[in-house]
Design a protein around this nucleic acid. Structure first.
Length: 209
DNA sequence: ACATTAAGTGATT
DNA sequence: AATCACTTAATGT
């Protein structure tokens, strides 16, 4: 299904033409960093296929997941950054192979004023993102690490569409801004509870996780 | 068989 | 919950 088809109820026809004219299609492979911390924001992405992970990064390279961008969604951080040409505060990574429409930031001002459907699209994604962001803040602030780990595994399994997760304990620890030993112990606990099976570099999620 | 890397564990803070 | 120091197990060459 083409971009125009999917968005014909969201954007007015004239704006769709503008998007076709100004935007270009970009693809990225799983694992590719699409936008690094500190890089200037050059375009606004609207995802066609795949999933993009948006995360905060600390000095030692540890990541804290902020949210995922799914198909037909865009990234709020680019809105806020590109208005005043600020560099990116976040790292965006292709969680799977992705394809997105890249809209040059130059048209932002004009479109905001000219197309009401564009303005409401921007406003709506900002609102939706803030809500998701609040959810992950709740998760960080109020949930214990073991609950966060379970959440992480489920999310990972949902995204990959598989109950087999190909990550080492070390990698999970980095992703959750924890340490390998702690993750190992929590996973061991889950294994004893018959919720997962542990292998080297692989974790099998069982039904009752 | 040996080296390398992932995972498990007790003790300490 | 994190870190250290160490052991054990799996995997690659």
């Amino acid at each position: 299904m083409s971009f125009s088809d999917r968005f014909k109820n969201v954007f007015e026809p004239e704006l769709l033409e503008q998007i076709e004219a100004k935007a270009r299609i970009v693809t990225a492979k799983e694992g590719d960093v699409i936008l690094e911390v500190g890089q200037p924001v050059r375009f606004i992405p609207i995802l066609n296929t795949g999933i993009i992970k948006v995360a905060r990064v600390d000095e030692s390279g540890k990541e804290i997941l902020l949210y995922y961008i799914n198909a037909n969604e865009s990234c709020v951080m680019t809105f806020t950054c590109c208005m005043e040409q600020h560099p990116s505060e976040i790292r965006a990574t292709a969680e799977s192979d992705v394809e997105f429409v890249a809209i040059p930031i130059g048209v932002m001002d004009e479109w905001m004023a000219k197309y009401s459907t564009w303005k409401s699209f921007v406003m709506r994604t900002i609102k939706e993102r803030i809500n998701k962001l609040l959810l992950t803040i709740d998760l960080l602030a109020f949930q214990k690490l073991d609950e966060r780990l379970v959440h992480f595994l489920k999310e990972k399994s949902r995204i990959t569409g598989s109950t087999l997760i190909n990550l080492s304990h070390e990698e999970i620890a980095v992703k959750m801004a924890s340490s390998r030993e702690v993750i190992s112990r929590l996973l061991k606990k889950l294994e004893n509870e018959k919720k997962v099976l542990l292998y080297r570099n692989q974790i099998k999620i069982l039904r009752d996780l």
